[in-house]
Amino acid sequence: MTDPAFDTTVITRAFTGRPARALRNHFVERYDRVAPVGYPALHHLTGRLRRAATAAGDTRLIHLWAGTGHRHARTEPAARTFARLAGRL
C-alpha cells in the first residue's frame, strides 16, 4: 500500500544533482529550484542528511524514488512479481 500523503512524482535534482523521478516531499519542494547540477558532489553533500532522516523515519527529507505508476505496486514475493510480469500467472 502506498502512503496517501505522496500523490505526485516529479523530476528533481534536489538530492543528487542528477535528474531522477521521486515522490514530491518537503525537500523536493524546498530545494529543487536551487539545486546545482553537481553530481556526484551534491549526492555526497546530502548523504548525511538523508541517512539521518532515514534513521529517524522522516520522509520529508529523504529521496523517495518512484515511477509514475508507483500507486499500482503490489505487496507480494519477488518471485510472484517476476512470474506475473513474465505472463506466467
Score class of each variant (00 low, 15 high):
P19C: 01
A22E: 15
A55T: 11
D58L: 04
T81C: 01
F27C: 05
H72N: 13
L23A: 06
H43G: 00
G67L: 12
R30Q: 12
R88E: 10
R60E: 10
R88T: 09
P36L: 04
A14Q: 11
T16M: 01
A22I: 06
M1E: 15
P36S: 06
R74I: 11
A83F: 01
R24T: 05
P77F: 00
G67S: 13
P4K: 14
M1T: 13
H43M: 02
E29C: 10
T2H: 11
R74V: 07
G67P: 08
R30C: 02
R21I: 13
R51Y: 08
D58M: 07
H63D: 15
G69I: 09
F6T: 10
G67K: 09
H26A: 15
T75F: 09
L85E: 10
F6Y: 15
R84N: 04
I11C: 05
P19F: 03
T68C: 05
T54M: 11
R50W: 06
T81S: 01
R80K: 07
R48Q: 05
H70F: 12
R88D: 05
E76P: 08
T59N: 11
R60M: 02
M1Y: 15
A83S: 04
Y39W: 13
V10S: 13
R80G: 02
A86N: 09
G69L: 13
L64Q: 12
R80A: 08
A56H: 08
T46S: 06
A86K: 04
R50V: 15
R50N: 14
T2G: 01
L85W: 08
T16Q: 09
R51K: 13
A86Y: 00
L61Q: 14
V10C: 12
R48A: 08
T8Y: 00
L64I: 10
N25D: 02
R71K: 12
P4C: 09
G69W: 10
P77S: 02
G67N: 12
V28Y: 06
A22Y: 15
R18S: 11
L23E: 03
P4Q: 12
T46E: 09
R24S: 07
E29F: 03
G47M: 05
T8I: 00
I62K: 03
R18D: 02
T9C: 11
A22F: 13
R88W: 10
G47K: 05
R50G: 04
H26P: 11
V28S: 13
R88C: 01
G57L: 08
P19L: 03
R30A: 14
A86C: 03
D3H: 10
V34C: 00
T54P: 02
F15I: 11
P36W: 03
A20P: 00
G87V: 04
R50C: 09
F6M: 14
